[in-house]
């Protein structure tokens, strides 16, 4: 049975911070996960081909000192563009969360409307100028057919970022987001960072590449929500882990890949 497990790669190193919990979330969803240092992947780029899913976790890669995700995306793109193109062509899945979203958007993996793997949107400093950590409600785009989003209604997840304001690169990109239904999530009830149309996450046209600022990997137990127990009712007396909305995302991905195996 083990050989039929969906293989997921989560990158680590250089200031990526949320790699452990992202790996744990994929494992909980039934995938087998390899944590690989960025440097080890760059040394042996062919390793990427062994995986069905790659996850770019949150953090401060290279301190975000030159801009969020910039150095990491530059390194990966200049040295591994072909490998990533091949990875996408095989119909595999990509997720970039927070700093990971900043990285894959700068690499051009998302929204990748042109198909040329060129950056088409930017994630810049929040309008407040400050980092913010709080839980938000996300509305899910029911018209986006992304495998990541299957059956998702509302999502409760934390945001933890200073540079999460999504800015589309051009009118063309704005139109494509609308026409191709690339929006994945919108912030509900507020726009905590000033994003274009309160966008919290977006996919490529195939739906297989998802980038989002909030952290679904930090929302895998219902009681992680600071509104708990109000939102969900009384205390949870069973030891069972309920798949909450964040968890659902990872289960969707694993199920999609399992069906492809």
């Amino acid at each position: 049975m083990k050989s039929s497990k969906v293989k997921t790669l989560v990158l680590t190193g250089y200031g990526i911070n949320a790699d452990q919990e992202l790996a744990a979330a994929f494992e909980q969803a039934g995938a087998s996960v390899d944590l690989l240092h960025v440097k080890d992947l760059l040394a042996e780029p062919w390793k990427l081909a062994a995986f069905q899913i790659i996850g770019f976790a949150g953090g401060f890669s290279f301190g975000d000192h030159l801009g969020s995700g910039r150095v990491l995306s530059h390194m990966l793109k200049t040295r591994m563009k072909e490998e990533f193109q091949a990875f996408l062509n095989k119909g595999n899945l990509v997720i970039g969360i927070c700093n990971g979203f900043q990285t894959i958007s700068k690499m051009g993996l998302v929204p990748n409307i042109s198909g040329k793997i060129e950056p088409e949107l930017a994630l810049v400093h929040n309008t407040s100028g400050h980092f913010i950590n709080k839980w938000v409600s996300l509305k899910v785009n029911q018209h986006n057919r992304s495998p990541w989003l299957k059956g998702l209604g509302q999502m409760r997840v934390p945001i933890r970022h200073g540079e999460g304001r999504l800015v589309p690169g051009s009118e063309f990109v704005k139109n494509a987001i609308k026409d191709l239904n690339l929006a994945a999530f919108w912030y509900e009830g507020e726009n905590p960072n000033g994003s274009y149309q309160a966008l919290a996450g977006i996919t490529d046209p195939s739906g297989r590449v998802l980038g989002l600022m909030p952290h679904p990997e930090a929302s895998v137990h219902l009681d992680q929500d600071p509104c708990w127990p109000n939102v969900f009712g009384a205390h949870l007396n069973s030891s069972r882990h309920y798949p909450s909305s964040g968890m659902r995302l990872f289960m969707n991905a694993v199920e999609f890949c399992r069906n492809q195996l």
Binding site: N17, A18, Q20, E21, A24, G58, G59, H130, F131, I132, N133, P158, R160, H215, E217, A218, V220, Q224
Partner: peptide, 8 residues
């Protein structure tokens, strides 16, 4: 402004 829940 502090990240109080990284590591989940």
């Amino acid at each position: 402004r502090y990240d109080h829940e990284v590591q989940a």
